[in-house]
Design a protein around this nucleic acid. Structure first.
Length: 570
RNA sequence: GGCGCUGUAGCUCAGUUGGUUAGAGCAGAGGAAUCAUAAUCCUUGUGUCCGGGGUUCGAGUCCCUGCAGCGCCA
């Protein structure tokens, strides 16, 4: 079995906050790291989602050409991902040549299979801007209430739904120009409603998917008039030019595919980018994505926030199914709720909450990883508070895990020197510890296998606690006075526990685990038999006392951050 | 307005297909220990499981309804 893992593609228009991280990339990374640690072959992909009007607007604000803006933001996001330890095998771009070709290919296939319809729409054209102005890019006077700053999609004053062509004295929201006219323009629609039965059956065939995932999918399939066909093209410059495979699409010159159509295809194209970067050729990536070219043994898992579920359960599968080609479809779709910030929502526009660059600026990545994963919004929305965050990470990381490593390594250094001491045989306490850990480790593995993130974190923490319990009960500092050999055996177990903790914790805390393993001069080898793992470091094996693994967050720091990230609440 | 989600100990949350005295972590209280980042370990929970009906031998767990918070859509 090989494992293909993707996390939802972050949009390109700026730095994301922690809420974006917790719902997709972080748990996906946890899963990828765990499977690799178990010796599995993994391909973990992510990319920036770069097309669409918001990217153009953001680039405009930054005063840069959109391609240049996207390239820069991609580099920024890639650097942040690296900072958080996200172990993507490739971090791609939806604007890549690979995605251009593949998106055009899919559109061509869908058309051949009669799933594309050309529709004439009436849109507002701005002479001054030289472009069509969809929805809110037109402003004017509301025909209903007379409000003068109504937007093309809705009047904020009377809440009436509007069409851009309804507005009185319309003007461009971009340039303010009133030189507007209504023009007819042709667009492609994907007839996904025709695939409703197949999608429905496919969803029904999925066993054990999170309720959140299937209920959202079912709602969109069955509610109201059922699954709606959707436009897949736009009158924009920035995007993938509309083509039928490698052929031109008559009548669609100058138009691009709509972002929701090309973004998920980037999951596939990204594998192509990855293969290209590693000289693996076409077959190198197709063995992950084509069931007729080797992907029969691939298990594909997607991670995303709940807002992304409809695209991943319906639109993207519709594209794959509609192509009539044997593309790999998702086997398990892990979806997350929202993380709230101190009683409200994270808000990009209000500057409320902690953004990724700020998070890394104030604390190490592992601290964020641990709190976000162990409190991720798995079954319902969850809440970030500074008090809870401070208490949680101080207790779990500094006190329970970090301090365990300190007490063992420092006690050993002071009594036996910086090497695993030669000691007596195991007694009942050591046997009991091994038996206890055997159960806990299997429980941890079961939770990780099931991608139950919070349960995994709880199980891992229980393992750390078991180490402290053992040490407290064995009390080598007391034994040392009567029976130094006994104390030596206990310390040897303690040092091996530290190694075991590092190995098991690595998916959650990759940086700390690496530092700890480095100090212990040990290798990351996933434990089979725990009793055996507790003897991995032999007597005489040298080590160094590591610097404190985790510094505690002080009250002063917490208060400062609380004020700094409060944003401008209304 | 329609649809959906949530409402369990002071806080953050678990609670499998309805079944014995409703759980965990944190915080609080008491104690042990002193190797360690004043860090650990043990003991300690009389909770109207939001309110009200109902189904059932039995409901936090199912149905109806009310309230509160949130989200999506029109």
């Amino acid at each position: 079995m090989r494992y293909l893992i993707t996390s939802a593609l972050p949009y390109i228009n700026g730095i994301k906050h922690l809420g974006n991280l917790v719902g997709s990339q972080l748990p996906a990374d946890l899963h990828a790291r765990y499977l690799r640690a178990r010796g599995e072959e993994v391909l973990f992909l992510c990319a920036t989602d770069e097309h669409g009007t918001p990217a153009e607007i953001a680039a405009g604000k930054a005063g840069k050409p959109v391609a240049e803006y996207c390239a820069e933001m991609h580099a920024v996001q890639a650097e942040l991902a690296k900072g958080f330890g996200l172990s993507f095998d490739h971090y791609g771009r939806s604007s890549s040549p690979e995605n251009h070709a593949l998106t055009q290919h899919f559109a061509g296939r869908l058309d051949e299979n009669g799933l594309i319809e050309e529709i004439i729409e009436r849109q507002v054209w701005s002479e001054a801007d030289g472009r069509f102005l969809p929805d809110r890019y037109v402003e004017g006077t509301c025909p209903n209430c007379g409000y003068e700053a109504a937007r093309g999609d809705q009047c904020e004053n009377c809440t009436k739904q509007l069409d851009p062509t309804d507005l009185i004295e319309p003007r461009s929201a971009l340039s303010g120009s009133t030189d507007l006219e209504v023009r007819e323009t042709k667009h492609l629609h994907l007839l996904q409603s025709r695939l409703r039965g197949e999608l429905d059956a496919w969803i029904d065939g999925q066993d054990g998917w999170p309720v959140l995932t299937t209920s959202i999918a079912k709602k969109w399939l069955h509610d109201g008039e059922g699954l709606q066909d959707r436009g897949i093209t736009r009158d924009l410059d920035w995007g993938i030019p509309v083509r039928k495979g490698s052929e031109p699409w008559p009548g669609m010159e100058g138009k691009v595919f709509y972002v929701w159509f090309d973004a998920p295809i980037e999951y596939i194209a990204c594998a192509g980018e990855w293969a290209g970067a590693h000289g693996l050729g076409e077959a190198g990536w197709r063995r992950w994505w084509r069931t007729d070219e080797g992907a029969g043994d691939v298990r594909y898992v997607q991670f995303m926030g709940k807002d992304n579920v409809p695209f991943h359960t319906l639109s993207f599968p519709a594209t794959l199914i509609g192509s009539g080609e044997p593309w790999k479809k998702v086997d398990y779709l892990k979806s997350f709720n929202y993380l709230n910030y101190d009683g409200g929502q994270f808000s990009t526009s209000k500057g409320r909450g902690v953004f990724q660059d700020q998070a890394l600026e104030i604390l190490p990545a592992d601290v964020w990883r641990w709190w976000l994963l162990s409190n991720c919004p798995e079954s319902s929305d969850s809440e970030f508070t500074w008090e809870g965050f401070q208490q949680g990470v101080n207790k779990d990381l500094a006190d329970v895990l970090g301090n365990f490593v300190s007490r063992v390594t420092k006690f050993c250094r002071s009594k036996f020197g910086e090497a695993v001491p030669e000691g007596g045989a195991w007694g009942p306490q050591e046997e009991a510890l091994a038996a206890r850990l055997e159960g806990l480790v299997r429980e941890y593995e079961a939770a990780m296998d099931a991608i139950e993130v919070r349960r995994s974190a709880r199980a891992l923490r229980a393992i750390w606690v078991a180490g402290n319990e053992y040490l407290q009960e064995a009390a080598p500092w007391a034994a040392y006075k009567e029976d130094p050999a006994r104390a030596a055996a206990q310390v040897a177990v303690g040092l091996n526990l530290a190694r075991l903790f590092a190995v098991l914790s690595a998916p959650f805390l990759p940086f700390a685990a690496e530092r700890l393993l480095g100090a212990l001069g040990a290798q990351a080898e996933w434990p089979g038999d725990v009793a055996e793992a507790l003897r991995a470091l032999p007597a005489g094996h040298g080590f160094a006392v590591p610097e404190n693994l985790f510094a505690k967050i002080t009250d002063e720091e917490r208060e400062g951050w609380q004020a700094r990230f409060a944003g401008t609440r209304a």
